[in-house]
């Protein structure tokens, strides 16, 4: 009898990998496609609706964005968005409703630590990195675009 496992860390981790149940990737992809597609279709419907009411294209897309952000926040507050997310995964994380969810969820959660150091400080806990790297990379892409424009 030996109380030590005769395995190196690498061997153990390969063994665990072979034993662990894998994420159902195909099922997840189908769900993500359907739910992500549905959210985008709803967005398109809102845009088309406002276009048909005589809004300009810029205004109609803005109204669409605002509506989807509201929808994401509303569904988060009534404990529905997390349930959608369990099945849809990236399908509900990537669209703007997911961004809204990632701001509202910590806001609800950290309200118990007060409005300033709780809600205020933690609201962008998940969305913060997206903003930091999203804005930084958009600045770089903008610079590249500007340089290319100089020579064309």
């Amino acid at each position: 009898m030996n109380s030590n496992i005769n395995m190196s860390n690498e061997e153990y981790s390969t063994y665990v990998e072979s034993k662990a149940k894998k994420s159902p990737i195909f099922k997840n992809i189908v769900w993500a496609f359907l739910v992500g597609g549905l959210i985008c279709t709803i967005g398109q419907l809102i845009t088309n609706l406002f276009l048909s009411w005589g809004f300009s294209k810029d205004d109609a897309t803005m109204v669409c964005t605002i509506s989807l952000i509201f929808l994401g926040a509303f569904l988060t507050a009534i404990n529905v968005y997390s349930k959608i997310g369990q099945h849809a995964g990236a399908g509900s994380i990537i669209p703007i409703t997911g961004f809204s969810n990632s701001v509202v969820a910590p806001a609800i959660e950290f309200k118990t630590e007060g409005y300033v150091l709780g809600l205020g400080a933690n609201m962008f806990k998940i969305a913060g990195p997206v903003l930091v790297y999203g804005i930084t990379s958009s600045v770089f892409v903008g610079l590249i675009y500007w340089i290319i424009k100089l020579f064309m």
């Binding site: 662990a20 149940k21 894998k22 994420s23 159902p24 997840n28 988060t76 507050a77 404990n79 968005y81 997390s82 349930k83 959608i84 997310g85 369990q86 099945h87 849809a88 995964g89 509900s92 994380i93 997911g98 969810n101 990632s102 509202v104 969820a105 910590p106 609800i108 959660e109 950290f110 806990k125 998940i126």
Partner: peptide, 17 residues
């Protein structure tokens, strides 16, 4: 959950393990 993982209402998927 709030100490070790994500906020409760965040719509993420859990690993099968």
């Amino acid at each position: 959950e709030r100490q070790f993982r994500m906020p409760l209402e965040h719509g993420n998927q859990k690993s099968p393990t």
